[in-house]
Design a protein around this nucleic acid. Structure first.
Lengths: 232, 232
DNA sequence: ATGTTCCTAGAACGAACGTTCGATAAGCGC
DNA sequence: GCGCTTATCGAACGTTCGTTCTAGGAACAT
C-alpha cells in the first residue's frame, strides 16, 4: 500500500516532453529506458516483447523498471505520444511562411519521411502497434493522429482549390499516408536514397504520377541523376 | 510418443490448397478453423491471440485443435500461405491476354484491392504479422511475396519502356504497395467506395498524380460522378 | 459383435507472463 | 549520528501461455 502510493506519484512526476536531453535525472533515465524499449518493441512487437526483454535491454532489474512507469501499456503510450507530438511540432514550424500549396504538400511529405527515416524504430512501433492501446491511452493517441490527418487533408484541399481540381481528398490523403508509412517495411539505408530524395520521388508520384516524366511542372526544378538507386 | 507420431502424420495429410469448399471432412474442418483463427488473429494480433481464444472461437476444445495442426505458428503459416497463393493465382489469370502496359498495371491494382477488401481480415493478418514466422515457414512466405513483388516490378518496367519514362521502379512499386496495403488500416465499407472505384482512383494517382484532373489520358475513359464518396 | 480409425475433451505440464513485495544502499538536510 | 527521499534489487505473486497426456465416444469395416 505504501509502495503503491510511492510508485504512482513517481511515475506521474516527469515533465510533459519526456526524452529531452536536459531535465532531471529521473527524466533522463526514463528517456534512456524509452529508447531501449522502442528498440525491443520494434524487433519483437509490443505483445511479443516481455518485461524481461526490456529489463535486459535497459540493463535494469525487472522491478527497477517499475520505478519509472507503472505498466507496460503506459510505456508504449509514452513512446507513441512523444514520437507523434514531435512530428507534429516540427511540421508546424516548417509550414510557417510557405504559401504555395504544392510546396506545402511537399513540405509535409519531406517532414514525414525525414522523421520516419531518422527514427525508424520509433515510427514502426507507432505504426505497427496502432490499436493495442486501450480506452484511455488509445483515444489520446488517436486524437493526435486525427489532428495530423486533418492538417494533411487541409493541405490537399488548398491544392485542389488553387488548381481547380476534382478528386476525393480522403482517398488521396490516405493513399499518400500509405505510400509514406509503408516505408518502414522496406527501407534499407544501405540501398535506398535519403529522406530528401525519397520525398521528392514520392511527391512526384503523388502530384504528377509515374506517367509524367516528373520534374518540370512544379516551381522546383532540381533533379537528381536518377541512376544512383539500385533497384532489386 | 505414439500420439506424437499420430499428430504429426495427421497434420501433414491435408491437400495443398486447404480451404477448398469440397475435400475430405478433415480439410473442411481445418478450413473452418483457419477461418475462425483468421478473425481472432486479425482482432488481437498473432502474439496477442491465445490458443484458448482460438478454441473458443472454433467452439472446439484446446486439445481438439491440435488434432488439425501442430503448432500456433503453423496455423499462421497456413493462413498466410493460402491467402497469398490465392491472390497470385487470380492475378495470373486476369493478366492473360491483356497487352497494354497501363491496363496491365490497372489490373494489378484492381486485383490487389478486390482481394484485399473481400478478405480484409486475412489480409490484415498477412500484412500485420509479416515477420513473426520463423526460419522455415518465414522464408517460404517471403519467397511468395518476392515473386508477387517481382511481377509488379515487371509491369511497371513494361510501362516505362513503352512510354520512355525515367524513374526509380523500386520506389514506384513500393509506393504503390504502400498505398494499397495501407487500406486495411482505414477502409470502412459503410463510408468508402468499393474495390473497383478505389482501384480506379488509386490507379489515377499512381499513373497521373493528383494534379492532373485524372481521367482523359488513358485508353479507358469511363468516369464516376465523383461526389458519391463522402470525405470526412 | 468386434476391432480400428477418426475425432474430441478434461486435466495437467513446465515455462513464461506482468506485476508487486520487502529489503537495501546511497545521497542529503539536520 | 538520524530520518527522509531516491533508486535499485532478488524473489516471489497469481495468472496465462502453448502444448501434451490420457481416455473415451462415434463411425465404420469386418
Amino acid at each position: 500500500m505504501g509502495s503503491a502510493t510511492r510508485t504512482s506519484s513517481l511515475s506521474g512526476r516527469s515533465s510533459a516532453r519526456v526524452p529531452a536531453g536536459q531535465g532531471s535525472r529521473f527524466d533522463r533515465r526514463l528517456a534512456k529506458i524509452l529508447q531501449h524499449a522502442t528498440e525491443v518493441f520494434c524487433d519483437k512487437g509490443y505483445e511479443g516483447a516481455s518485461m524481461r526483454d526490456l529489463s535486459r535491454a535497459s540493463r535494469m532489474s525487472l522491478a527497477g523498471l517499475y520505478y519509472y512507469f507503472d505498466s507496460k501499456e503506459k510505456l508504449l503510450y509514452l513512446i507513441q505520444k512523444y514520437t507523434f507530438t514531435t512530428i507534429l511540432e516540427r511540421l508546424r514550424v516548417r509550414l510557417e511562411g510557405v504559401e504555395d500549396p504544392e510546396q506545402r504538400v511537399r513540405i509535409f511529405i519531406q517532414n514525414h519521411l525525414e522523421y520516419f527515416l531518422a527514427n525508424q524504430k520509433a515510427v514502426k512501433v507507432l505504426s505497427h502497434e496502432d490499436d493495442v492501446l486501450k480506452n484511455g491511452y488509445g483515444s489520446e493517441i488517436a486524437a493526435i493522429k486525427r489532428e495530423y490527418y486533418r492538417i494533411c487533408l487541409e493541405l490537399v484541399d488548398e491544392l485542389k482549390r488553387e488548381q481547380g481540381l476534382e478528386f476525393s481528398s480522403r482517398i488521396a490523403v490516405l493513399s499518400l499516408f500509405g505510400m509514406m508509412n509503408w516505408i518502414y517495411t522496406w527501407h534499407n539505408p544501405r540501398v535506398d536514397a535519403d529522406a530528401g530524395e525519397l520525398a521528392r520521388e514520392m511527391g512526384d508520384i503523388f502530384l504528377h504520377g509515374v506517367c509524367r516524366g516528373h520534374g518540370g511542372s512544379g516551381p522546383q526544378a532540381k533533379r537528381a541523376s536518377g541512376s544512383k538507386v539500385r533497384v532489386m
